[in-house]
Amino acid sequence: MHAVKFTADQSLLDFIQAKLDKLDTFHDRIISGEVFLRLEGADSNKVKEKIVEVRLLLPGKELFVKEHDKSFESATDRVMDVLKDKLVRFKQKRNDISSPAIVEARSQEGIEDEVFEADEL
């Protein structure tokens, strides 16, 4: 986790970590993740909103979500909602492509992966 241009409270970091740990229930192959916490308007000494950005690495895919709100906790909740949806959709697409029903349908239609010999290329 990275707090950009400020020091984040340990209780906030623990809150975000606990939320992110729950993502394993939606996708079991998360490789890594990064969190960036930013203060919008920090340069003018009047913080307008708090921004939470999360980048997750999955096999063959990178997910990035950015949300802002009045507090880091509520922005984190909004990020989690979007990430849950994205993870479920990504896992569903992955399962759809490799599902036995699709493989069987492709083979029945005669759609198979063609294999070419070196002299045919």
Results as ranks from 00 to 15, higher is better:
His2Tyr: 09
Ala3Gly: 13
Thr7Ser: 15
Ala8Val: 04
Ala8Gln: 06
Ala8Glu: 07
Asp9Val: 04
Ser11Ile: 08
Ser11Cys: 03
Leu13Ile: 10
Leu13Arg: 12
Asp14Asn: 06
Asp14Met: 05
Asp14His: 13
Phe15Asp: 09
Ala18Arg: 10
Lys19Arg: 15
Asp21Gly: 11
Asp21Asn: 14
Lys22Tyr: 08
Leu23Glu: 11
Leu23Trp: 01
Leu23Tyr: 02
Asp24Ser: 11
Asp24Gly: 14
Asp24Asn: 14
His27Gln: 09
Arg29Phe: 01
Ser32Gln: 06
Gly33Arg: 13
Phe36Arg: 00
Phe36Trp: 04
Leu37Gly: 07
Leu37Phe: 10
Arg38Thr: 14
Asn45His: 12
Lys46Asp: 12
Lys48Pro: 00
Lys50Asn: 02
Lys50Gln: 12
Ile51Thr: 08
Glu53His: 00
Glu53Met: 02
Val54Arg: 03
Val54Ile: 14
Arg55Leu: 10
Leu57Gln: 11
Leu57Pro: 00
Leu57Tyr: 04
Leu58Ile: 01
Leu58Arg: 02
Leu63Trp: 01
Lys66Phe: 05
Glu67Gln: 15
Glu67Thr: 05
His68Thr: 12
Phe72Val: 01
Phe72Ala: 06
Asp77Val: 02
Arg78Met: 11
Arg78Gly: 00
Val79Asp: 05
Val82Lys: 14
Lys84Cys: 02
Asp85Leu: 05
Lys86Cys: 04
Leu87Cys: 13
Val88Phe: 09
Gln92Val: 02
Gln92Glu: 06
Asn95His: 03
Asp96Ala: 06
Ile97Val: 14
Ser98Glu: 13
Ser98Cys: 10
Ala101Pro: 05
Ala101Thr: 07
Ile102Glu: 04
Ile102His: 04
Ile102Asn: 05
Ile102Lys: 12
Val103Trp: 08
Ala105Thr: 06
Arg106His: 12
Ser107Cys: 00
Glu109Ile: 07
Gly110Tyr: 15
Glu112Val: 12
Phe116Pro: 04
Asp119Ala: 08
Asp119Lys: 07
